[in-house]
């Protein structure tokens, strides 16, 4: 009876789930079709003729030096800035949570306030600064920019997470004569692993997907998004190159997300409902 009454809801949600999956699924199938087929029909042609599917587009993509370089750049920037961000935020978060000093709460407020500075406001001065210092068009330049704009959220998230650590653990370690550096590396970091994971996933996804920063502060140092954008702009319709590149560019964050969904959701909740 209840099962029957729930049938409309089940069907509705089934339809919605399908609707939400179709775009990504469509892109995947498009990337598996030979260019001649894509020219004349949509991805659904393959449903009737699965034998049309081929990995040729991917082979062509991995043979293309520019796209492979772009993939490497994306990885370097995304992994590099995430690691750096986690380290620096954890240090600052520890100070804000467990090292008392005058003006601490005010300073923390300022840092949290920076959370809503739109990164657009920094583009022009940083563009000039990078041109003057040689950081323009380097992976390091991109990494530092991403770290900076990840910091307000990172510090906020980790400070709150570190506060959850029971005070006795830290106090007793200090009583036992552990240095602050030891407390930090041997207690704090391991104990706040879930929050660190959430922050890392967030920042990784965000920077993996960045377009505007790389487009502005790089030229030859192109991540995948910029490379695809160039293709999109240059030829408009060479979907046999764009589709596999776009799919690769989303497959990795998607895999990260699916593997670590729990941590991601926790981070989201902590970020948006706390503070």
């Amino acid at each position: 009876m209840t099962a029957l009454r729930r049938l409309p809801v089940q069907l509705l949600l089934g339809g919605i789930a399908l609707l939400w999956l179709v775009p990504t699924f469509g892109l995947l199938l498009t990337s598996l079709l030979p260019p001649s087929v894509i020219e004349s029909g949509g991805w659904w042609t393959v449903l009737a003729k699965p034998r049309l599917m081929t990995l040729d587009n991917y082979r062509a993509m991995f043979a293309d030096r520019q796209l492979v370089d772009a993939l490497v750049t994306t990885c370097v920037v995304a992994v590099g800035n995430t690691a750096l961000l986690v380290l620096i935020s954890a240090l600052a978060g520890y100070a804000f949570a467990w090292l008392p000093f005058r003006g601490r709460d005010g300073l923390f407020l300022v840092v949290v306030g920076l959370l809503v500075v739109p990164l657009q406001i920094a583009l022009i001065p940083i563009f000039s600064l990078y041109n003057a210092t040689g950081l323009f068009d380097t992976a390091a330049g991109l990494i530092l920019f991403h770290v900076a704009f990840g910091l307000p959220f990172g510090i906020f998230l980790l400070r709150n997470a570190l506060l959850e650590i029971p005070v006795e653990i830290i106090e007793s370690a200090r009583l036992d004569g552990a240095s602050e550096a030891r407390v930090f590396t041997q207690l704090i970091l391991p104990l706040s692993r879930p929050a660190i994971a959430a922050l890392a996933i967030f920042q990784f996804l965000f920077t993996w997907n960045d377009l505007i920063v790389a487009l502005t502060l790089g030229r030859a140092t192109q991540p995948l998004t910029v490379a695809i954008f160039a293709q999109l702009r240059q030829y408009g319709a060479n979907i046999d190159i764009i589709a596999p590149a776009a799919f690769i560019s989303l497959a990795i964050p998607l895999a990260v997300f699916l593997a670590l969904q729990g941590a991601f959701t926790r981070g989201l909740l902590a970020g948006s409902t706390k503070g």
Partner: peptide, 28 residues
């Protein structure tokens, strides 16, 4: 439903660019 969040804004844009093509033979 949450999955598109992991997909970049940009990749989502590419997806919808393809979805919204004018030719009914090609645009979903």
């Amino acid at each position: 439903v949450f999955m598109p969040m992991a997909v970049s804004m940009f990749a989502a844009g590419v997806i919808w660019h393809v979805m919204a093509e004018k030719d009914p033979q090609r645009g979903t």
